[in-house]
């Protein structure tokens, strides 16, 4: 099969579009946020997500969430094959609504933290993490 110049260009563009698309906020992520919020409007502020700007190794990316007054914090990675990462539920003895862990990221993408406050309101924040080597095997 011989490609003309035009076909080759079209193929290249198509491949570029495919490469970019999975790292957009996808439907699964939006569904997960909507389900977590349970019908409440998702606002801004009140939740902090600390993640590195550049992660060399996508297999272990350190993240921290901090949401004073939150009962639950959900972390999502919009560009992973499965967007869910973890949900932290804080009990009565939690000293602060702060937790840190290490996560896997398949590639450069937005990491999203959604917090459910004690009064029922829901807030979210996101941080873009650039990943040099993805962490989902293959």
């Amino acid at each position: 099969m011989i490609f003309s110049r035009r076909e080759t260009l079209a193929l290249g563009l198509g491949a570029a579009a495919l490469g970019v698309l999975p790292f957009r906020v996808n439907a699964a992520t939006e569904d997960a946020i909507a389900e977590f919020a349970g019908g409440a409007d998702v606002g801004e502020g009140g939740v902090t997500l600390i993640a590195p700007e550049i992660a060399e190794n996508g297999n272990t990316v350190p993240i921290e969430v901090d949401a004073p007054g939150a009962t639950e914090v959900m972390v999502l990675a919009a560009g992973n094959p499965l967007p869910g990462v973890a949900t932290f539920e804080f009990g009565p003895l939690a000293g602060s609504h702060h937790a840190s862990t290490r996560i896997r990221l398949a590639g450069t993408q937005d990491v999203i933290a959604v917090a459910k406050m004690a009064d029922g309101s829901v807030v979210q924040t996101s941080a873009l993490v650039k990943v040099t080597i993805g962490g989902c095997g293959g």
């Binding site: 990462v85 973890a86 539920e89 003895l93 939690a94 962490g135």
Partner: peptide
């Protein structure tokens, strides 16, 4: 009494 309860997905790194 609960301090923290974490639900983990496959995106948590090896050796959580």
């Amino acid at each position: 009494e609960t301090v923290i309860d974490v639900t983990m997905e496959p995106a948590i790194s090896t050796n959580p």
